[in-house]
Amino acid sequence: MTTTLLEKPELETSEQQFATFYVGDMLLGIDIRQVQEINREFEVTLVPHAPDYVRGVINLRGDVASVINLSTILGLPEVELAKESRNLIANYQNESVGFVVDRISDIVTLRSDQIAPQSSSINGVEGKYFSGVFAMETEILVILNIEEVLSGNCTD
């Protein structure tokens, strides 16, 4: 029995952990290895002439990190900051970028064969921002394609 348990992940594909969170009503997930920290630092310094999806910059322990409104990029209605709002700092290409999310949810462990590819849009959000979906018991977890999200060429 032990052998089967051990072998299974090897035979199948590797397991991945996802940090999941809500933006609006959407449950989104990103690879946990890309998450650097989660904080409540919302006191941003506004940046003049910045693209509209950039909320501002914060002092992240001596470094300057951009904070991004995920909802703007995804074309979702802008959400007010609330008690549960969090700043999720992702590390992408050696740069710290903060995402404003409405609520942090669980950490979900998935095998890659459990993730269905997704190319069409979901809830009006363009499919190019997703690298896959996973049907949970009650809702759908959408895995974000962070490269595309941060590429800066959002079409709105």
Binding site: T45, V47, P48, H49, V54, V57, N59, D63, V64, E95
Partner: peptide
Amino acid sequence: VKPLGRHLESCPCLSGATILGDGHVAL
């Protein structure tokens, strides 16, 4: 001098950011 992230590279009037004594970011 701290560099700004790549999303802010195109801002024409800014050359970077710094952190002031009180911990706030100044451009």
